[in-house]
Design a protein around this nucleic acid. Sequence first.
DNA 1: GGCTTTCTTGAGCGATCACTCAAGTATATA
DNA 2: TATATACTTGAGTGATCGCTCAAGAAAGCC
Lengths: 190, 190
Amino acid sequence: MPRKPDYNREEIIERARDLFWKQGWMGTSLKDLEATLQMKPGSFYAAFGSKEALFELAMEKYASDGAHRLTRMAKEIGPIRTLQNFPVLVVENEESPAKACMLSKTLLELHAHKHPLADKANHHLLQMEKQFADLFRQAQSAGEISAARDPKTLARRYQSDLIGLRVSAERQGVDAKSIAQEIADNLGSM
Amino acid sequence: MPRKPDYNREEIIERARDLFWKQGWMGTSLKDLEATLQMKPGSFYAAFGSKEALFELAMEKYASDGAHRLTRMAKEIGPIRTLQNFPVLVVENEESPAKACMLSKTLLELHAHKHPLADKANHHLLQMEKQFADLFRQAQSAGEISAARDPKTLARRYQSDLIGLRVSAERQGVDAKSIAQEIADNLGSM
DNA sequence: GGCTTTCTTGAGCGATCACTCAAGTATATA
DNA sequence: TATATACTTGAGTGATCGCTCAAGAAAGCC
């Protein structure tokens, strides 16, 4: 009977993700969203309920897309090369809205305010860490790196370095590709 | 002839620094500042001119205090132990307004908006990097670490790792002290 | 075509933003 | 003590914040 929405919901969420990723939570106003998503306030609130609800969807999309990309890479080139290539790819990607990780940015911006979105960002980061640990475990099983060290410890350090790399990549006058290459090289000699 | 201010300017800047450091630029309103600094808007604007001007002073204080602390440490315990201890100290300090670096936070928050404060944060980060490079150079001269690698490259990587560490320390459920210890240990075997 | 149902539109809500300024108050000099 | 010179106060500025809702437009079913 009724009318269907004029927009593609998934595409809207992706555009919102890119805008939030780039500008942050407080740095993105509803005017910004209206312009980028081509939606008037009424449609926006009918579709998503609130700015916060959309941010949550955007962050989930960010996290799950990242997880899928990692899984796909691991299938294609194996765990150790995935771990080595990932930092380089992230830094080299000229199309992404920002070099820095959206989850880190959200955490840093909202942690002090005890905003629920900060906890959700942390949750996604923990999931990512688990995925890294899995890849290290697989690399050890395949004999690609030494089995002496705890994969969870390796993942924790790897993620921390990756976060630092991605913040550095956001800076001007810093050769982030070199840092990424160093991280990759370090993994090669373990 | 005139009346003197009721407040100590340096102390006010320190309190502003702590609040901005914790809550960020957009996350800190003038109401917040009025409450924390115990200043009414009129006094505030007479003393500092704008929120932005005070943030800049706060960031300068943050940077110069950090630089002095590093210099002092290097005099007391030498360059390599300074580089090793610094990450551990930063993570263990329970009194600091936030674990993450104020400069990184400012950069991430304001870079996309091309806000002048983002450039100033980057400038201070570059100064810090230079100081780290100096410490690596001193450590090489003293024979404490191998002279094979470029001190600037070492500093760049060190700072990137430090930034990652400090973001990680802001998270819940992450053992940042272990990461800090790993960074320190790595420097020991170079 | 008429009816129902949903979507879109955009003016406008109260709250809060960074900031201003006229009036009042305190202090050092004369 | 009188006066000049800041400094402090806080109500109030226009702009923008996230968000609401009544009215109009479009599409599926009879």
